[in-house]
């Protein structure tokens, strides 16, 4: 699948939660978009990603 514009290899059937874990990102500080649709946080555990999905993840760091 494409993650933030780069082709990456992950097991098929991976959920958003599992992808975030593999990328070492906290689910509390990210915005996740799959095929241009925002995925609500309460769906991270259920949302399964497919091979041809285009995933965009914005991870926020503190400071303002």
């Amino acid at each position: 699948m494409i993650v933030n514009g780069k082709e990456r290899d992950f097991d098929s059937g991976i959920t958003v939660n599992e992808l975030l874990e593999k990328l070492n990102l906290s689910k509390d500080t990210v915005v996740v978009e799959v095929n241009l649709e925002i995925v609500p946080k309460d769906q991270y555990a259920a949302k399964i990603l497919n091979e041809d999905d285009k995933v965009e993840i914005v991870s926020f760091v503190g400071g303002g």
């Binding site: 915005v31 609500p40 914005v58 926020f60 503190g62 303002g64």
Partner: peptide, 13 residues
């Protein structure tokens, strides 16, 4: 324009 990264993500989401 928050400071906390969790608040930032929550607002944008």
């Amino acid at each position: 324009a928050f400071d906390d990264p969790g608040c930032k993500a929550s607002l944008v989401n």
